[in-house]
Simulated assay, not measured.
Amino acid sequence: MKIRLQLFEFEDLPWFPRVIRAGMMDYLRFMISLLGTYQPIVPQLRDAMAKASTSDLLELGAGAGGGTEGVLRRLHAIGLPTARITLTDLYPQPAAWQLLAARTPGLTYEASPVDATAVPATLTGFRTIFSAFHHFPPSLAEAILADAVQQKAGIGVFEGAGKHWLEILLAWTVLPVAQLLFTPFMRPFRLSRLFFTYLVPLIPLFTIWDGTVSILRMYPPAQLLALAHRADPQRTFEWQAGKVRHWWGPEVTYLIGVPRSK
């Protein structure tokens, strides 16, 4: 699927209820962690961090932190034992992040809002964006990459899908069933999550819509490279984009940029 439709996701709307957004993010974090969605890209991320001469990650648009624990542990296991990660978001979720930080060595977070298009210079490290880059229209997506180029910060953009029609079918069928099954086991525990999943099922309904739109809004590798080249007209970074497949089938779409060695 090469088309990209700039539709809207409810979680992006400023008036959208925080309690519903948090429930959706909790589900996304739980499923990404359970399925190990981003494990296939860890070797590429490790190599990019080595080229950028850093063991620190700065996650932008972290949401509830989906997949972060698994990625960090895998980095520790394959040659970066000192790797650390700081979670940031324009809509911080300290309650969810505190839980992750308490059980994950090397994981911290920034409690203040952080705009991915204008990251404060005090927040350093190799920038990552998991499951969030599709939220940004081309102008803002390009601005995110341009800010990394301007500050000479390596950046990796990762989407846990390969942009296929089958993935939309899964979003309509299998994943809603999984959401109903797994919601009682999600942490931190929230009565609101149970209420808006089973009694008034707003969380599942909005998740189906946003999950479908997320796939339609995803940038395929060629478009990711085009954005990167517009953000870096002087070609001061080395850019690569593509897809890697998980051992059990699904793909991860990625863009990685690292400052060129002088």
Rank of each mutant, 00 (worst) to 15 (best):
R235S: 13
W239P: 02
R4G: 09
Q223F: 01
G70E: 14
Y198Q: 04
R18Y: 03
P188H: 12
L100V: 12
M186S: 07
E69Y: 00
S53F: 01
L145M: 15
R18E: 14
F16C: 07
T212V: 12
Q179V: 10
A143N: 10
G66N: 01
F196I: 07
H164P: 00
L169Y: 14
I256V: 14
Y38M: 01
L99R: 15
I144Q: 05
S55I: 00
W248N: 12
Q6A: 14
I256D: 05
S261V: 07
T212M: 08
T236A: 12
D47G: 03
P17L: 13
P233E: 07
G125W: 13
Y254L: 04
P138C: 00
D232Q: 06
E142N: 10
P92M: 10
Q6H: 10
R230M: 03
P233D: 06
A64T: 07
I155K: 04
F126A: 06
R230C: 05
A52C: 04
P137A: 10
K163T: 02
L35P: 00
L227W: 05
G79E: 09
E69D: 13
A121N: 12
H246G: 01
E251R: 13
P204Q: 06
A226R: 14
F185I: 07
G156S: 13
D56I: 00
L224C: 10
V149I: 12
L80E: 09
P138V: 01
I215H: 11
V114D: 06
P233G: 05
P204R: 09
V114H: 08
T108W: 01
R84Q: 14
F126T: 12
H229L: 08
E59Q: 14
D147T: 09
A48V: 01
M24H: 07
L170T: 11
A146I: 02
Q179E: 03
R4C: 02
G211F: 06
R73P: 01
M49C: 15
G156N: 06
V174C: 00
P259C: 06
A48E: 02
R103I: 04
R21P: 00
L175G: 01
D12G: 09
S53A: 14
V157K: 08
G70R: 15
L145H: 07
Q39A: 13
S261K: 14
P220Q: 04
L87F: 07
